[in-house]
Amino acid sequence: MIKALLWAEAYKLMKQSRTWYAIAAVFVLELIVLISAYYRGAAVIDILLNNLKESFYFEGDLLNGNLLIYLILNSLWFNFPLILMLVISGMITDEYKDGTLQTVMLQPVQKKWFILSKYIVATVFTVLMVLVLALSAFLFSYLIFGKSDLIVFIGKLNFFNAVEAETRLILAFLNGCISMIFFSLASLTFGVIFRDTLKTWIVSVLFLIVSNLLLKFDFKWELINKLFYAKLNDTWQYFFQYEIPWNIILRNNLLLVGYIVGFSAIGVVIFNKKDIG
């Protein structure tokens, strides 16, 4: 049964025009970010290397595909989950709005499996979207701007050679997947709770904004700084520390997976308990 439900959910998702608009929006955003990153990249390099100009000549081009992908990563981690949340939350709110939920529930379908299939399809869709984003970012950036060393400022000026930079950028995208899944599934849970499309969108957007604000907020207790979900969403940045802190990355990702399971469980439980009507 679950297989049929998964196919049905995937079909419904891909049939929605909203999904294709979202994919198109990602490409448009990526293009805009790429152009802006190219112009901003020159200023970034100028600032980072300004104090070294006095003592050094520079050989090689730091304004290359790797820096642009890094800037794309920085810019898209707010806009991208926003698009995902709008699409994913629609998977359940549209069912409420169109009344299709009652129709489905008249079939021999368990509520638990029905909602679980939505969470699974939402996860797969999110991963696929991140892959599309990553592939297009690498493709456009490398084709147009080539590949060379990456410069990143995280406490210190970190330089990575081209191969190392590419590996770290791929790892950052893969790690970013977990954050994106978290926001996608959170929006699905909000959809289960609020049912109404507009309310769910407002709550999802608010949740994303608050999460971003809290990411920069320094809590008084170190334990909160370590464990709070909002603090885990830029774990991908650790891949650009010179020595990758694998322990912190593993801990943060496990915690975030815990939050994902927690949020999803809340959605499944609420959906199971609530009446459909």
Binding site: V44, I47, N50, N51, N74, S75, V152, F153, L215, Q237
Partner: peptide
């Protein structure tokens, strides 16, 4: 061996917020 000025760039400079504010950069 050479002397070089170390700059302190705001921590979020290359993080999520990539806006450049040269005034915030301290030597």
């Amino acid at each position: 061996e050479f002397e070089v000025e170390e700059v302190k760039i705001p921590l979020n400079f290359m993080g999520r917020d990539t806006d450049i504010d040269r005034k915030q950069i301290r030597t």
